[in-house]
């Protein structure tokens, strides 16, 4: 065992909780925890399906929370973890739709409504002025 490993093992033994289970426990680093929670809020629970994993009591959701916290603590960016999960479960697992041709209507339809509605309003207002 390397010296570093030994220190880590001793630190683990000394801490009141032997092994933190990050499924339910915050990361010690507040910034990393905030990133992890933000990501959990946007990952859909594959068991209960209606909720994000940050608000689900399912075991698998807990596993995903653990995975997210551990990966972020290890230095991965939230988007890297998200794409890892998408690589496993597909786009469905992310509440944040990827920007790609098949999701275009999500942005185009509101934009069209804004432009179309705006044009109608503008035309009427200008006509009033004359």
């Amino acid at each position: 065992m390397s010296a570093r490993g030994l220190i880590l093992a001793l630190a683990l033994l000394a801490s009141p909780v032997l092994a933190q289970d990050y499924a339910e426990v915050s990361l010690p680093d507040a910034r990393a925890e905030a990133q992890a929670v933000a990501l959990m809020d946007s990952i859909r629970c594959v068991v209960c399906q209606g909720q994000p994993i940050s608000g689900s009591n399912a075991d698998l959701a807990g596993d995903m929370r653990r995975l997210i916290r551990e990966r972020i603590a290890a230095g991965e960016s939230p988007e890297q973890v998200r794409s890892f999960l998408i690589g496993r479960y597909g786009d469905w697992v992310s509440f944040k739709p990827e920007v790609k041709p098949i999701t275009a209507p999500l942005w185009l339809v509101p934009l069209l409504a804004l432009l179309g509605g705006g044009a109608l309003v503008a035309r009427r207002l200008q006509r009033r002025k004359a």
Binding site: D21, L60, G62, D63, R66, L67
Partner: peptide, 13 residues
């Protein structure tokens, strides 16, 4: 342990 393999497989249940 901790559902690691299950998630790695993309298994949902």
């Amino acid at each position: 342990e901790g559902g690691k393999a299950q998630i790695a497989f993309g298994s949902a249940g």
